[in-house]
């Protein structure tokens, strides 16, 4: 009896170790890029926090940065951590207490919004913006069967009877909702009059659109791309004022007549508050090199991210302005 028990346990443990070894072998092969760099890298051993779970947009951005900083030998070592919670405000609250220029964090438009809607004690303007990096753009689409051909058609109908024209969005108070609020104002409506229906992300919104449950939907271009190609969805406008890099034929919001309603879902990199000017200059240099590398541009294109680079100073000014305009917009949407 005793011997049998031991054998059972040993088999279980043996399997565990075998799996461990196998998987270690694979992931060691996967990380690649070993060998000593010819010159010392610009940046030290960095830790980049993605203020959301693995697989999220912030996480993908952080991992892409990790990949390129390592392969281009711009940093000695990069470790990505994930701090989930409350739209990123949990991570933000922890990050404002940090001081080392090697601790970095990803931020973006949705975190600007979450700080406001959650009434969080901190916002991104308290950090040191290093560089704005990339962006993604929403599109507003209608099902193929919809009577609306242009954004103006839809906005007119929306102004007429907002209740009968539900608009699917991917989350409450996020980028989709904000841009929807801007469009509502273009239609001459109070943003709170619009019948926004919140789904769990663009995928569920897509199902509702294909099933003709809603009049229109707002989500990232990527979520709808294939159905747009097959003609099942019709794009009324993109959220960009220039044609999209990934789909240049789609009407931009400027084409539709509302250039002021462009809104980008940007993501950028932040350092802790109060780092020295030299440290900031080093970080800026590192990330300026990053965005010019081919490796970065390849990852960027694959992911459908647009180049939204701004250096530290421009980024800080833009962020300040956007934090205020976002607060106003969220108030208009009745979320603050």
């Amino acid at each position: 009896m005793n011997i049998r028990k031991r054998r059972g346990t040993a088999v279980a443990v043996g399997t565990l170790v075998a799996v461990g070894l196998l998987a270690t072998g694979c992931s060691a092969g996967g990380t690649g890029s070993s060998g000593a760099p010819e010159e010392g890298p610009v940046l030290g051993a960095l830790s980049i926090d993605a203020p959301s779970g693995a697989g999220s947009g912030y996480d993908q951005t952080a991992r892409a940065i990790e990949q390129v900083l390592t392969s281009e030998r711009l940093a000695q070592r990069v470790q990505v951590t994930n701090t989930e919670g409350a739209g990123g405000t949990v991570a933000l609250a922890e990050f404002v207490g940090m001081s080392s220029p090697d601790d970095l964090m990803i931020g973006g438009l949705s975190l600007v919004g979450a700080s406001i809607t959650n009434d969080a004690p901190n916002d991104l303007t308290e950090l040191t913006p290093v560089a704005r990096l990339i962006g993604e753009y929403d599109v507003i689409v209608v099902p193929d069967a919809s009577p609306y051909e242009t954004l103006q058609d839809f906005l007119d109908a929306l102004a007429e009877s907002p209740g009968d024209n539900p608009i699917a969005i991917g989350n409450q108070g996020g980028y989709d909702h904000m841009w929807g609020g801007l469009l509502a104002q273009d239609a001459g409506l109070e943003a709170t009059d619009v019948n926004f229906v919140t789904f769990d992300g663009g995928g569920e919104a897509l199902i509702a659109l294909l099933g003709n449950q809603v009049a229109a939907g707002i989500s990232g271009y990527g979520e709808f791309a294939d159905s747009i190609e097959t003609g099942e969805l019709r794009v009324l406008a993109t959220a960009s004022d220039e044609p999209l890099e990934v789909a240049p034929d789609l009407p931009s919001i400027a084409d539709a007549g509302y250039p002021d309603s462009a809104l980008v879902n940007w993501r950028g990199i932040f350092a802790p508050p109060g780092i020295s000017d030299e440290d900031l200059a080093t970080l800026e240099e590192g990330f300026a090199t990053l965005v010019e590398s081919d490796a970065w541009n390849e990852i960027r294109t694959t992911n459908g991210w647009s180049d939204e680079y701004l250096d530290s100073e421009e980024f800080a000014a833009e962020l300040q302005e956007q934090t205020e305009s976002t607060r106003q917009l969220l108030e208009d949407l009745g979320l603050v």
Partner: peptide
């Protein structure tokens, strides 16, 4: 459709997109 109906399917979708 490219629509994930479970958390795991959502991550597999990202894997597709990475390629």
């Amino acid at each position: 459709l490219g629509v994930p109906t479970s958390a795991t399917a959502g991550v597999i979708l990202i894997a597709f997109q990475q390629y």
